[in-house]
């Protein structure tokens, strides 16, 4: 009887989860592979024809291959921002955990402020404009680095505290201090947290919509999220193409999720609990 009730409950939970969480995704994929006429019905019907390749080609060719350029821009943005975040934040997190003093409380304060304070948009544009970086990819890269810094520093600081100090001391006896100590001895040991930082921040940067919207407007250097946003108004009748675009943009995070599910989840919960 109890077992029966248990499996009944299980069934209800599974069915509910499927309806609520899987139906929207199936809808995306189904609409993406329909032809234009059927996709306009926006229902859950099975596709009558499967112009998958044709839809794909049309989306990619749209507006002079803007999507390909957007993927290139988003890749450069994500790789560069994440690389800088890893180097800068591991260094800062290391010293922050190891070296006590007044500086530490100042830095801790700044890190927490970075987590809480919403960025001031127009003044940031003003600063970038002054530096000649407004509407440029390097400018947006710096913005992403600055806005994801607190989270990454916190993750690194927490992980460094699990690296025994005796190791530093042994290295120092061999004459390693400063840069040598960090990059030769400590940084290789931080690999697990580095992978976590890479995964979580690259998903965040790739999916970011607000900052490209403000700091990198214009078609020629749009990111994938911006093209999707612009397609929304352009393809108001070609739903199959709009949803094909959505599917294409969802693939990179899906791959990250399939291969590194555990790492991502642990990184996000650690960030949440520590922050």
């Amino acid at each position: 009887m109890r077992a029966l009730r248990r499996s009944g409950l299980e069934l209800v939970a599974v069915v509910l989860a499927v309806v609520i969480f899987v139906v929207p995704f199936s809808f995306m994929v189904l609409t993406a592979v329909k032809d234009e006429v059927q996709s306009a019905e926006l229902d859950f019907g099975w596709p009558t024809s499967w112009p998958v390749v044709q839809n794909l080609i049309e989306v990619i060719e749209a507006r002079d291959y803007v999507l390909l350029r957007a993927f290139l821009n988003s890749t450069i943005l994500t790789v560069a921002a994440v690389a800088l975040l890893v180097v800068f934040c591991s260094m800062a997190g290391f010293v922050l955990q190891r070296r006590a003093g007044r500086m530490r409380s100042v830095v801790n304060f700044l890190v927490l402020s970075g987590l809480i304070i919403p960025p001031a948009i127009v003044p940031t544009i003003w600063v970038l404009q002054t530096l000649g970086l407004f509407k440029t990819l390097p400018g947006l890269i710096l913005v992403e680095v600055a806005f994801h810094m607190s989270y990454s520093v916190l993750l690194y600081r927490a992980f460094v505290s699990a690296v025994p100090r005796e190791l530093d001391e042994a290295a120092m006896i061999d004459g390693c201090t400063g840069f040598k100590l960090f990059f030769k001895v400590i940084f290789p040991l931080l690999r697990p947290v580095t992978i976590t930082v890479i995964l979580t921040t690259s998903v965040a940067v790739f999916n970011d919509f607000v900052n490209p919207l403000y700091f990198l407007p214009g078609d020629e250097n749009a990111t994938v999220q911006l093209t999707l946003y612009n397609f929304q108004s352009q393809y108001s009748t070609q739903w199959n193409l709009l949803f094909m675009d959505i599917v294409l943009i969802t693939i990179p995070p899906l791959l990250a999720f399939i291969f590194f599910n555990r790492k991502i989840v642990s990184g996000m919960t650690a960030g949440a609990v520590k922050g």
Binding site: F88, R98, R99, G114, T124, T177
Partner: peptide, 20 residues
């Protein structure tokens, strides 16, 4: 010099200060 130089804060600090 200290084995944990404050210099390590500099790259992150510059970006954070200027952009945030």
């Amino acid at each position: 010099g200290n084995p944990y130089p404050y210099l390590f804060y500099v790259p992150a600090g510059i970006v954070y200060t200027v952009v945030f």
